[in-house]
Amino acid sequence: MTLMKLLIKSNCHCYIANKSFGNYYLPTRFQYVILRDYFNKINAVFNMPQGEPIFTKTNIRLRSLINNLKPKSILVLLSIYVLPENKIIRKEIISKMIKKKIELHLIFEKTVIKSKKDFKKINDTLKLDRFTK
């Protein structure tokens, strides 16, 4: 029992989009369902996330969340497309995650990003997506 408690991850956080992201739109309550299920699978404590204000393009919620994360925390997003569209903001956020050694889990892409090299792939994927539109 004690061992089980030790294995429960309490440093996992998540974040949701309040509007469409990539090719998806998911009502917030279903985003919670998917995230909660994922947290159960990775044995992490789920805390209700808050979303980005729909009227801003500054990603204040995500920037604030990453700023508050402790080093080596886990951040879970539904998709790579939840990340900021704005390249400058995205770059700042990714730099901060690399610096803090944040592990980024992208559920739809079935990807866990840990290294600087992996983080570079985020921009490549988003760029490739733009090429094909």
Binding site: N18, K19, T28, N47, M48, Q50, G51, P53, I54, F55
Partner: peptide
């Protein structure tokens, strides 16, 4: 600390 509802307006989510 796990049940926080940070400062927000309800129209943040539309």
């Amino acid at each position: 600390k796990s049940s926080l509802l940070e400062m927000h307006s309800d129209f943040f989510s539309g």
